[in-house]
């Protein structure tokens, strides 16, 4: 948020106060992205989830500076998410969590930095081509086409045959296939959006607050689905989550953002035990 923001931080480079410096060191301890990244020449088949070794970075972001127009949201962010893992991004409102996901999909203005996906540079790839690199994205709101029927929503992504196949994983939706998506409940709509994401068998799935505005019961259902997808496909899942406690319980790795900087990355349990960080940024 702007009022929390130190004016000296505007250039994005010398932003880190002393509090953040140990977090930076921490981040490098847990970050094994650098050397694996150069070793990905064998990953030419684009929509193949099996060719990435577990534990290797599926998405790797370096020195990312981005925002909307002249307004910079992220300052020099490093980020990596591994295959087979569930990575959560937490932080307060306006800390740049959603912007980080949007940057991967080219939905905000990137000033500098690079975004790699399985060794390929996708920093300036047009939004509609990102999916071809095996990455799918679920927006927080407006993530289904309201006026199209469920079947049309699924077909628009992957054609009719794949739409039928996707339905096998979401039997809850089968009775409503012919109805316009606007008639669905909030939870059903999120399920549909997930089904649409899964159609192309992505190896990276980005979720922007999938449980926002859902009842606790529906939220649990969605999270259970996401974990099941992760287990079955061994793919890389990145999740922006407002409900910190919940996220820390099930994720394999966590990034904590504050005012557009990474202040912690690594094991969620370590973050919980770090009284300093937990009280300052998570209100725990």
């Amino acid at each position: 948020m702007a009022n929390e923001h130190d004016p000296a931080c505007n250039d994005g480079t010398d932003c880190r106060d002393t509090d953040d410096s140990h977090a930076q060191a921490d981040m490098h301890d847990h970050d094994n992205g650098d050397h694996d990244n150069n070793n990905n020449n064998d990953n030419d088949a684009v929509l193949d989830t099996t060719s990435s070794r577990p534990g290797s970075p599926a998405v790797y972001i370096k020195n990312l500076v981005c925002g909307y127009g002249k307004n910079r949201v992220l300052h020099n962010v490093d980020f990596s998410a591994n295959t087979d893992e569930l990575t959560a991004i937490v932080g307060s409102n306006g800390s740049g969590k959603s912007t980080l996901l949007k940057a991967i999909f080219g939905l905000c203005d990137i000033t500098s930095g690079s975004i790699m996906a399985r060794g390929k540079n996708i920093t300036r790839v047009p939004t509609h081509d990102i999916l071809k690199h095996g990455i799918s994205y679920m927006a927080q709101r407006k993530n289904v086409f309201q006026e199209l029927t469920l079947l049309e929503n699924l077909s628009v992504v992957g054609g009719r045959a794949n739409a039928d196949q996707a339905m096998d994983h979401f039997p809850e939706l089968k009775p409503f296939l012919g109805r316009p998506a606007r008639t669905l409940s909030g939870g059903q709509r999120q399920l549909l959006a997930m089904a649409m994401m899964l159609i192309n068998k992505p190896y990276v799935m980005l979720f922007d607050e999938p449980t926002a505005a859902l009842s606790p019961k529906n939220a649990d259902l969605i999270i259970a689905k996401i974990r099941k997808i992760n287990e079955e496909n061994n793919n890389c899942i990145v999740l922006v989550e407002q409900n910190v406690m919940q996220a820390l319980n099930y994720c394999d790795r966590v990034y904590l953002l504050a005012s557009g900087n990474v202040v912690y990355s690594g094991d969620p349990q370590v973050l919980l035990e770090d009284k300093d960080l937990a009280s300052k940024y998570l209100g725990l």
Binding site: F105, L107, P126, T127, H128, D129, I130, L131, K132, S136, Y137, A139, K142, N143, V144, F145, Q146, E147, L148, E152, S155, V156, V157, G159, M196, N200
Partner: peptide, 24 residues
């Protein structure tokens, strides 16, 4: 047609259409 479906999708929500791989 599939093309028309993509057209209607792009009219309703251009950003979503683009993230789903439709060249709007």
């Amino acid at each position: 047609t599939n093309y028309g479906m993509r057209m209607r999708a792009s009219i309703e929500n251009e950003t979503l259409a683009r993230t789903l791989g439709i060249d709007t």
